[in-house]
Design a binder for these strands. Structure first.
Lengths: 238, 238
DNA sequence: TGACTGTCAAGAGCAGTGCTCTCGATTTGG
DNA sequence: CCAAATCGAGAGCACTGCTCTTGACAGTCA
């Protein structure tokens, strides 16, 4: 309203605007804390209480509980993506399987440190909540790290595309569509197919661990996870 | 109480006992219906209303909402296990990879037909709810189908254990413990490791599909899932 | 300076939830 | 036949997400 031109960023933000922005992040932070302690069923009233607010006041900043959840989910993807990027970046470029393993470890470490947020992102969808379109963008950020490893690994000749995989036509069509996504250009479908399998394996294993499905089965989760990461690295041809 | 000897089945069940048993299953059925339509946040009051009951009456049969959920989870594992067994049993014994693929398809078909129940079993744990010990038994039932395929496949020589997999000591310890579980006896750790990887892959891929993580990415889910099942079959040496 | 406009937090209130307790009615077993 | 156990109904508590109204404040234009 106070910005008819549409470029609101650089012009001096009013006192109110800045207070509003700060309050918005404070609410999100309090919500994240609640999420970490109380679990996934986020109580808007509890968040308000933590901030010394009345529940209705929160609605000045988020139109509904779902909108707050959406904001948390988006932030979560960004946070996970950042952690994944950082973990991968710490490995020498030429060590392609090492970069994949670092990516996997980074995802796992983040998930362990933010269990409930992980559940929010990769667990079963929240009751009445349907993830809106705006979350799909940030959601691909961790995947783009994988894409970069694949492309760079192929360029370096550090990934030898598997041969002899019979891929049905309809699967190939889907794979080709993925190959067209920015970031994945040029990845042959044979590699892409195996990489997507490995990606699902990673999150399947991680969900097993975090959701307690391996209790009394696996003791040394880190070693078990690492072993699967290595196995998947050779599986995709690294 | 009315059966100090411990063999209650054959003696004539009183009218009340039979009414109680029937009411218990009716509550579970109504709850399952609610789960299918309304989603995972089961409302005990809604279930009661569906049965023309008052909410407090339900507490005569289930001490809490969590206990009702537990009952549903146990039934769910049994139901999934049954479906998996049936699917696997329909394939000729000698077709070992076919049996694995049938098992995977059976799991997927069940999950598609019971999406919310699948989320209850393999999604993020329900808020305050911690799956009690009594669920761990039924939870292994689908896994036992896999175990039987592995053992039978090895006996028939239809599974060639992979060689050259370097397995760290701590992982081997965990695998050996699994090998000791009834049903898994005699499965070499090299096969077991890959089979557990494939198992996580299966559920990872299925969760991706059911929780909408592959929307706008994969079109022909069935073909994609099948392809991964075949890939994992050769991966474990079938 | 004074009025006006948009924003804010507070509070009451609605419909829903899980769960507990009490109270009659009914069935069961001695 | 009677006491004990079991059942459903109802009221009630503390909690939830959300809506609406009210009064206070900040920013701006005359």
């Amino acid at each position: 309203m106070c910005d008819p031109v549409g470029v609101s960023q650089p012009v001096a933000p009013t006192v109110r605007a800045r207070a509003r922005a700060e309050m918005t992040v404070q609410i999100k932070e309090a919500a994240r804390r609640r999420l970490a302690t109380d679990g996934p069923d986020l109580s808007l009233r509890a968040v308000a209480r933590d901030l010394g607010l009345v529940s209705s006041a929160v609605y000045r900043y988020f139109a509904s509980r779902d909108e707050l959840l959406t904001a948390l989910i988006i932030d979560g993807y960004e946070s996970l993506g950042e952690a994944a990027e950082a973990a991968e970046a710490a490995v020498p470029r030429r060590d392609v399987p090492g970069r994949w393993i670092a990516l996997g470890r980074g995802v796992r470490d983040w998930a362990l440190a933010n269990r409930h947020e992980y559940a929010l992102l990769y667990g079963s969808p929240v009751p009445g909540y349907a993830a809106p379109q705006e979350t799909t963008g940030p959601a691909t950020r961790p995947l783009l790290v994988l894409a970069q490893i694949l492309r760079d690994g192929l360029d370096r000749g550090a990934i030898t595309p598997p041969t002899g995989d019979r891929i049905p036509r309809s699967v190939r069509v889907d794979l080709d569509r993925v190959s067209a996504v920015p970031g994945f250009e040029g990845v042959p479908s044979a590699v892409l197919a195996r990489a997507m399998t490995a990606w699902a394996q990673l999150f399947g294993s991680l969900s097993f661990e975090l959701f307690g499905r391996l209790r009394n089965v696996v003791e040394d989760y880190a070693a078990y996870f690492d072993h699967q990461l290595r196995a998947m690295a050779t599986y995709v041809g690294m």
